[in-house]
Amino acid sequence: MKEFHITRNDSGQRLNKFLEKAVPRLPGGQMHKYLRLKRIKVNGKRADAAYRLAEGDILQLYLNDEYFDPPSGEQAFRRIARPRLRIVYEDGHILLADKAPGMVVHEDENGDDDTLIAHIQAYLWQCGAWKPEDAASFAPALCNRIDRNTGGIVIAAKTAEALRILNDRIKAREVEKRYLCAVHGCPQPPAGLIENFLRRDEARKQVTLHKTRVPGAKTARTRYRTLATAGRLSLVECELLTGRTHQIRAHMASIGCPLLGDGKYGVNELDRPYGEKGQALYAYSLTFRFTEPAGALQYLNDKTFTVPSVPFVEKYFPSFSIAQLSIF
């Protein structure tokens, strides 16, 4: 018999949803069978799958041991002795990490589990802010993601409540994200709005842009402004008004100003003199703009967070300072 003591992070969810996360090897059919047979109880009594767990509940599972074997790769954070993490901001609910270009946020198709979330979990575990054994169905999780070769701010939720709120707010477009990029040439006009339809090609892992809506395409809108020029490069700030795959990379290429180092949408001949191996794109700023009360996270409303520096800005635009930027 195994017991789970329901904590605040595990409370408020249906019993069946908790079991799907806490005991992932237990098939759904078996779960419902064991609920009927009282081999799964809450506070010593029979419970329905729809029962809402409350803090302090005790869940008893009279199940075979093989259902509790952890899936392979699940404990990647335990193998990290020294987390590589640049923290922009942290409190009891969230952590904002400045992801380095080249790091993946989640385990990829190649099985690379040296990920940003693993390093965040390792850090929180080692400093005592997260105890995996105290929350069977919750682990610190990322609320947004950025490409491997893009750097910048990624939001991690440290509590289940924060994760639920932020997922809703991001879906409602109440978290503003701004990027800096180095592009070839000078955008014309220097500032503007790029708006069209973007379709993702899953096989090629690339997107195409269309002036009119085509099957599978979604509206893509990017606001941009040119901040500085240096030689044949320009420093551009972009605000995502929609959050599509490769949106900034495809949009800047579409106006004749591909990102420096972008092997997918760029121009190799232009990139070659610089020797860059990844796109010069950085999610440098994040602002919370809640239109409705955000519960435990209301204190974040109208707060803006920025990274202290961006490598390609320091390298190619040394006289420019991120601190001098104002929101547009």
Rank of each mutant, 00 (worst) to 15 (best):
residue 38 K to P: 06
residue 68 F to E: 08
residue 36 R to T: 09
residue 63 L to K: 00
residue 41 K to L: 14
residue 37 L to I: 05
residue 59 L to K: 10
residue 39 R to K: 14
residue 59 L to Y: 09
residue 59 L to G: 07
residue 39 R to V: 01
residue 51 Y to M: 10
residue 42 V to D: 03
residue 32 H to D: 14
residue 62 Y to Q: 14
residue 52 R to V: 12
residue 49 A to L: 11
residue 53 L to P: 09
residue 49 A to F: 06
residue 33 K to G: 06
residue 71 P to A: 04
residue 69 D to V: 12
residue 54 A to W: 05
residue 48 D to P: 00
residue 44 G to E: 03
residue 73 G to E: 06
residue 58 I to M: 15
residue 41 K to F: 09
residue 36 R to S: 13
residue 36 R to W: 13
residue 68 F to D: 08
residue 64 N to Q: 12
residue 44 G to D: 00
residue 52 R to C: 12
residue 52 R to Q: 12
residue 72 S to Y: 09
residue 72 S to H: 10
residue 37 L to R: 15
residue 34 Y to W: 15
residue 46 R to W: 01
residue 51 Y to S: 11
residue 71 P to T: 02
residue 39 R to F: 10
residue 66 E to L: 01
residue 71 P to G: 06
residue 57 D to V: 03
residue 45 K to P: 01
residue 59 L to Q: 09
residue 72 S to F: 11
residue 40 I to P: 02
residue 62 Y to I: 06
residue 67 Y to S: 02
residue 50 A to W: 07
residue 39 R to Y: 05
residue 47 A to T: 09
residue 44 G to T: 05
residue 34 Y to Q: 15
residue 42 V to R: 07
residue 47 A to K: 04
residue 76 A to N: 08
residue 61 L to S: 07
residue 32 H to G: 13
residue 42 V to P: 09
residue 42 V to T: 05
residue 46 R to L: 05
residue 68 F to M: 08
residue 40 I to T: 04
residue 54 A to F: 04
residue 33 K to C: 09
residue 64 N to G: 11
residue 37 L to N: 14
residue 35 L to C: 10
residue 61 L to I: 04
residue 46 R to G: 13
residue 50 A to N: 02
residue 55 E to K: 11
residue 72 S to D: 10
residue 74 E to N: 01
residue 48 D to R: 15
residue 42 V to G: 04
residue 61 L to T: 06
residue 73 G to P: 13
residue 33 K to H: 15
residue 48 D to F: 08
residue 43 N to K: 07
residue 39 R to Q: 13
residue 77 F to M: 06
residue 46 R to F: 04
residue 39 R to T: 06
residue 48 D to E: 13
residue 64 N to P: 08
residue 35 L to A: 04
residue 43 N to C: 08
residue 56 G to E: 02
residue 58 I to V: 15
residue 49 A to K: 14
residue 55 E to Y: 08
